[in-house]
C-alpha cells in the first residue's frame, strides 16, 4: 500500500503464487576480492530472501559507495546504488512513499559511521521499517586502504601509516544511544548460520533493524578480526528466546551470555564490554513509533484535491 494516490499498489493479474528459490535473487556475478566477507553476506541475504519468499520486484536494496555498496548489483531485485554516505536519505524517501516495499540498506563503515554518520543517527531515530546492514571491515577498501572510524587504534593504513591515532568508534554504543532506536544486533560473516538468523530477526522486526556485520577484508584489514575468527572462545553468543538462537553453534561457541534484548541498560553494557566479541540481538523494542506510521495520511483523489484546493484558494481571495 502507499501513502498517497500517486502510486498504485501492484496487483498481479494471474495468481503468481510460485515459490522463489535462491537463484531467483541472483544478479550479476559478484566481483569482490576472493576471500572478501561480502560474498558470505550476499549468500546469507539470498537465503533470507528465499526463506522469506520476498517477491524480487517488491524488494529493494539501497547502498552508498564503497566495496559493500556494490551489493545491489549482485541481486535480482530493485537496487539503488547511490552516493557515498547517502543511502539512508534515499531509503527514507522510498519507504515513506512505498511502505509496501521491503527495503534493505547496505553500507560500509566509512559510508555509515563517517561521511553518512549524520543520516545514520537520524535514521535510527526515524525508525522506519527497514533493515540496515553495516558491513564493517574497519577500513576503506574501494579507495585502497585508508583509516575509517572503526579501524582499531594502532592499525596502520595509507592515511595513518603509523597506526590509527584514535580509539575506534563503537557503532553499537552509538546506535544504542540514539533515542527511538528499536533494534540493534551484531553478527559476523564468518559464522553464516548466525548471520542468516540475525538477518532474519532483523527483517522480521518492525522498525529500523540495525545490524553490524563484522566483515573481513583479506586485503587491507585481515588482522582486525583474525583472532576472533581463529579462536571461538573470543566470541560470546547472546542467548534469549527473543534474540537469535542457533543450536548448531552451541558446540563450537561455548560462551553464552543470557541477555534480554528488551533491556536497554543491559544492551548498553553488552555493547561496551570488550571481554568478548558479543554476537546476537542486543536490543529490540517493536513498540517504538515508526516514522512511516506517524506520517501516513489518507490519499486524496484528483477530484478531491481540486475541491480542497479551491477552498484553499478562497482563503486568499480578494
Amino acid at each position: 500500500m502507499t501513502i498517497s494516490c500517486g502510486v498504485l499498489p501492484v496487483l498481479e493479474p494471474e495468481d503468481q503464487e510460485h515459490a522463489y528459490e535462491m537463484g531467483d535473487y541472483e544478479g550479476a556475478r559478484a566481483r569482490w576480492c576472493p576471500g572478501c566477507g561480502d560474498h558470505s553476506i550476499l549468500t546469507a541475504v539470498q537465503r533470507l530472501l528465499a526463506s522469506e519468499q520476498l517477491p524480487p520486484e517488491r524488494t529493494m536494496f539501497v547502498s552508498g559507495i564503497g566495496c559493500s555498496s556494490r551489493f545491489p548489483h549482485y541481486l535480482n531485485t530493485y537496487g539503488f546504488h547511490g552516493i557515498h554516505g547517502r543511502a539512508l536519505p534515499i531509503a527514507t524517501g522510498i519507504k515513506l512513499t512505498r511502505p509496501d516495499l521491503d527495503i534493505f540498506v547496505v553500507m560500509g563503515d566509512g559510508d555509515c559511521t563517517s561521511i553518512g554518520a549524520g543520516h545514520w543517527i537520524h535514521a535510527l531515530r526515524y525508525n522506519l521499517d527497514i533493515v540496515v546492514m553495516l558491513l564493517d571491515n574497519g577500513i576503506y577498501g574501494l579507495t585502497k586502504n585508508q583509516t575509517s572510524p572503526t579501524t582499531p587504534q594502532g592499525h596502520p593504513s595509507n592515511t595513518q601509516p603509523h597506526g590509527s591515532w584514535l580509539p575506534s568508534l563503537n557503532p553499537l554504543t552509538t546506535a544504542l544511544g540514539v533515542t527511538n532506536a528499536s533494534f540493534v544486533a551484531q553478527t559476523a560473516e564468518w559464522i553464516p548460520s548466525h548471520l542468516y538468523a540475525t538477518l532474519r530477526a532483523a527483517r522480521r522486526h518492525r522498525g529500523l533493524s540495525f545490524v553490524r556485520i563484522l566483515q573481513r577484508c583479506p586485503v587491507y584489514s585481515s588482522a582486525v578480526y583474525m583472532k576472533a575468527v581463529q579462536d571461538p572462545s573470543r566470541i560470546a553468543l547472546l542467548a534469549h528466546d527473543d534474540g537469535v538462537v542457533v543450536p548448531e553453534l552451541e558446540k563450537v561457541y561455548k560462551n553464552h551470555v543470557a541477555h534480554n534484548p528488551h533491556d536497554l541498560e543491559a544492551a548498553r553494557r553488552v555493547a561496551e564490554s570488550t571481554e568478548h566479541v558479543n554476537l546476537g540481538v542486543l536490543f529490540a523494542d517493536p513498540s517504538r513509533p515508526r516514522y512511516e506510521d506517524l506520517r501516513r495520511v489518507p490519499p486524496r483523489t484528483a477530484d478531491e484535491r481540486i475541491h480542497l484546493l479551491d477552498a484553499e484558494l478562497d482563503r486568499y481571495a480578494v
Binding site: 500500500m1 502507499t2 498517497s4 494516490c5 498504485l8 499498489p9 501516513r296 495520511v297 489518507p298 490519499p299 486524496r300 483523489t301 484528483a302 477530484d303
Partner: peptide, 15 residues
C-alpha cells in the same frame, strides 16, 4: 479506517 479506505479509493481512481 479513513486511511485504508482512502487508499483503496485512490487505487480505483488511479486506475
Amino acid at each position: 479506517l479513513d486511511r485504508p479506505i482512502a487508499e483503496f479509493r485512490a487505487l480505483m481512481e488511479g486506475a
